[in-house]
Design a binder for these strands. Structure first.
Length: 359
DNA sequence: AAAACGTGGCT
DNA sequence: TAGCCAAGTTT
């Protein structure tokens, strides 16, 4: 039997975490409510995203979409505009779809059954546990990045967490304080975020230090272990800011699915081997929009890193020549004046382009 | 099962 | 500076 399966140890871990949380837990906007919709929004925004980034988005979102029916009836355009800059835009699309599902299937009332919650798009096991424990104090465990790190250190996990997900869920389930699930889950996440941090954990202040196997072996900075990562591929992109004679710019709305789905952008594409930037831009614009342009002055060059590749955006002013623009590889096209650009949700990599255009 | 999916902050 | 990491889910 592992030490963390001993009921005396479990109770001691639960009690010490709860006392620590009551004294040292963070005061966060979504902790002053049990409104499941508010907590749901916070949980989704917090996926792979840090608290300080989320807070302003959380307030703006609830101000714009105060309840589930309002969100369900909103346009995706407005939703994406509110989400602009937060990243992982599928979260916003899923929140919209899930709100429509709650509206139609549950009369707009967020369900309290785990099986029902898990059918909502964008809500997986951890988010479901986070919502049900925080909103309804239900004993449902979680396994987010904080919890993985804390538990990996507690048991001195000998392999990268990715390789031991099933085991970590068992530990998380076993240690969950079934009498105080809300405080336990929130406390465990706070412990990971403020004490058991990725680098330089504050073990001297940790309520679990006397049980922590990593600390006992002085491995707290080696655990969690990680696998070596492969270098990110790099893409050179040609981007066109196409002007017509009315002083308008042609922008397109990306396909609904995939990278930056539903966001607007300046058209362009990947530079092929042995292709000049100007030739690339001309070719891409003909392929994607079916029009002829003339490539003019260089506007700006932008380097940007996504999760799984990096890009260099080579942006050029272009002049529209002939043909009727068609959305051959996008959802929609618009000619817009520079001052209208701010009305559309753009990816972060494009904000510098807009700044330079608008001045 | 592994890859796709954004961005900002920290080291 | 380049890489790592963050309240993960979906396909």
């Amino acid at each position: 039997m592992e030490f963390w399966e001993n009921s005396t140890v479990i109770h001691s871990l639960q009690r010490s975490l709860r006392e620590w949380y009551q004294a040292q837990g963070r005061d966060l906007p979504w902790r002053s409510t049990t409104n499941p919709y508010h907590i749901w929004v916070s949980e989704v925004m917090l996926q792979q995203t840090q608290v300080s980034t989320v807070i302003p988005y959380y307030y703006r979102w609830l101000n714009q979409f105060p309840d589930i029916p309002t969100l369900a009836e909103s346009s995706l355009d407005l939703i994406l505009k509110l989400w602009e800059g937060l990243g992982y835009y599928a979260r916003a699309r899923n929140l919209h779809r899930a709100a429509q599902q709650v509206a139609s299937e549950y009369q707009g009332i967020f369900p309290q059954e785990l099986e029902k919650v898990l059918t909502l798009p964008g809500i997986g096991r951890t988010t479901a546990g986070g919502i049900l424990s925080a909103a309804f104090n239900q004993p449902v465990s979680i396994l987010d990045g904080n919890v993985k790190r804390v538990l990996a250190r507690l048991v001195s996990l000998e392999q990268p967490p990715q390789k031991a997900i099933k085991q970590l869920w068992v530990i998380s389930d076993t240690l969950l304080d079934k009498k105080h699930p809300r405080e336990y889950n929130q406390g465990l996440m706070d412990l990971g975020a403020t004490i058991c941090t990725p680098s330089q954990p504050a073990c001297l202040l940790c309520p679990w230090s006397e049980f922590c196997q990593a600390l006992q072996y002085n491995l707290q900075t080696k655990i969690p272990m990680r696998e070596p990562s492969s270098p990110l591929p790099h893409k050179e992109i040609g981007v066109a800011v196409i002007w017509n004679d009315q002083g308008e710019i042609l922008i397109d709305r990306r396909p609904e699915e995939g990278l930056l789905g539903g966001l607007w952008e300046f058209p362009g594409g990947k530079i092929e081997a042995n292709e000049t930037i100007a030739a690339c831009i001309q070719r891409e614009i003909e392929e994607e929009l079916g029009i002829k342009i003339e490539v003019g002055e260089h506007l700006i060059t932008i380097n940007h890193a996504y999760t799984h590749f990096r890009v260099t955006l080579n942006v050029y002013h272009c002049q529209y020549l002939q043909g009727e623009p068609q959305p051959l590889e996008s959802q929609e096209l618009r000619w817009v004046k520079p001052e209208q650009l701010s009305e559309f949700p753009f990816p972060k990599a494009n904000t510098k382009i807009i700044e330079v255009i608008v001045g």
